[in-house]
Structure formats: C-alpha cells, structure tokens
C-alpha cells in the first residue's frame, strides 16, 4: 500500500475515534440504568438498555422543544425570504448605495452579536417583548436577516446576467423576473440558507439567555438547566442533551450538504 494512504487512514481513524467518542458516550450514557450510572464511566456500554430516563426527560422537554420550533422555523423562513428580496435588489442595481448597503450587510454578518447584549435587551424590551417567544424571534431576526442577505447575494451572484437581462428586455416587471427567472434556479441556495439558519438558531444559547427568564422558553436553556440540578446523574444530563440535539443532528445527517454549502459560502464568499 502507498504511504500516503497509510497516513490518510491512520489520521482518519485516530482522529475519527476522538471525533465520535463524545457522541458515542452521550448516547450510551442516556440509555443506562441508575445503578450503572453510579458505578461505570461514561464510555462503558450498558449491560441492559434502559429507556426510562430518556422517556422521562423527553417528557420534560416537550414544552421547550415546542417553543423552540415555534421560534426557529418562522425565523429561518422569514430571514431567508427577507434576505432573498434584499439580495435581489443588490444584484439588480449597481450603484454607490447598493454597494454601501452590501458592505454594511457583510460587516453586520460577521459582527459578534454577543457584543450587542445590552442594546438587544433594550430593543426587545422597548417593543414590550422581553421574556416572550416573539422577543427571542426578534433577537434572532436582527442578527440572522443580514446573514441570510449575504448568503443569498453569494448564491444569486452565479445566476447568468443574460437570463435576467432577457426578461427585462421582454418588459417583465421586477416581481415577475424575480418569480419566474431567479426563484426557479435558486432552489439549492434557498435550502442552504434555510437549513443553515435553522441549525444555528436552534443551537443558539446566548440570545434566549439574555432575552428571557427561566428555562422553558428555549431548548438550549432547558438543557443547561440539567447541568445544575442533576448532580452526578449524568444519564439525565445526557438524555436532555441528546433529545434536544436530535432535530439539528437529524437535519445535519440527511441535509448536511446544504449546511456545509452555507458554511462554505460564509467562509469563502463564493458558491462552492
């Protein structure tokens, strides 16, 4: 066998074990019985599968899971639509104004939202939305709409200009060009943006933490609440972490290529 393949397999296997080990322990730990949790390290497989903890925790997570879905799905859909419209405007008009707005969108995307803690809370409070689900959604939209706009500009920039020009010459209005020419070829870009924002907002901890009280309004807050109250019963913590991560993890497993496309676009600024 060639040396480079040996190198490649050694690196992938050794690092692969380190990469899989945490999730492997997470799954095993959440299906252990209480006595085994007390007596065995996290990575030892259970002698018998015990689903009582996971069922119990899943029941406790029902409300936060529903709340999170109620917030995150509209946020992903709305920011994608708003981003798409803004991107179309930027693509269709070349001027100082659109270039400046584009630069502002790009800077907003890469500005650490954590630094906007104090104003975010103030903005959400001034709309009377503190400690509500629409308040969390507003916090997300402020940050994810510019990100969606940037992603959409990147995905739209590869649409041939001739295609749009031809429609303009035919006398089509902007909304009909957008609907008939741009939308049909933008499918994968839309899905990427949607999936990307869905996953990152589902996993966000900081924005719900600063905009609400208590733990039940968002899944990551609820998962965090198990850290304090479960002591050494790692099975409860693991079960909460596992159940709470299932939606993004399942989306990643089946539609991961779209998430990767989104990451890649934000990273390199081009459609890979």
């Amino acid at each position: 066998m060639r040396w480079n393949l040996v190198y490649s397999i050694v690196v992938i296997v050794v690092l692969g074990i380190i990469w899989i080990f945490p999730v492997y322990s997470l799954i095993l730990g959440s299906i252990k019985s209480l006595s085994e949790v007390m007596n065995t390290p996290i990575y030892v497989p259970p002698k018998q599968v015990d689903l009582t903890t996971i069922a119990e925790v899943a029941n406790e997570l029902k409300i936060p899971l529903a709340n999170t879905a109620i917030v995150v799905i509209p946020v992903a859909v709305l920011s994608t639509i708003f981003g798409m419209l803004a991107a179309y405007a930027i693509i269709r008009r070349q001027s100082k104004i659109s270039d400046t707005l584009m630069l502002l969108v790009a800077i907003a995307t890469y500005t650490p939202y954590q630094a906007l803690l104090v104003p975010f809370v103030q903005i959400v409070r001034s709309f009377g939305l503190y400690n509500t689900l629409p308040g969390i959604a507003l916090g997300f939209l402020i940050y994810y709409t510019p990100m969606a706009a940037l992603l959409m500009v990147i995905f739209m920039s590869v649409i041939p200009r001739d295609l749009i020009e031809a429609a303009v010459v035919d006398g089509a209005g902007e909304f009909s060009i957008f609907r008939r020419v741009v939308l049909p070829v933008l499918g994968p870009g839309i899905v990427s943006t949607l999936i990307f924002i869905l996953i990152v907002s589902w996993n966000n901890f900081f924005i719900p933490l600063i905009l609400t009280r208590g733990y039940n309004k968002f899944i990551t807050l609820k998962i965090f609440s198990y850290v304090g109250q479960s002591g050494t019963f790692y099975n409860r913590m693991f079960a909460a972490a596992l159940v709470g991560s299932l939606p993004p993890l399942i989306i990643f497993i089946f539609l991961g290529r779209y998430f990767m496309k989104g990451l890649m676009a934000l990273g390199t600024g081009t459609k890979a």
Partner: peptide, 27 residues
Amino acid sequence: AFFVYPMSLSMIVVGIMWRWIFDPYKG
C-alpha cells in the same frame, strides 16, 4: 461532513459531553 459535525451541535451540548469526559471518576 463527519469532521464538521461538532458545529451542528449546540455549544451547551458540547460542554456537557466534554464536562463528563474530563470527569475524574467517570471520564
């Protein structure tokens, strides 16, 4: 995709997993 997957998890979940991997008695 396999090596990118930790980015699809919440940092809270990542924290919980590694907190126990670093545990002196169970990790």
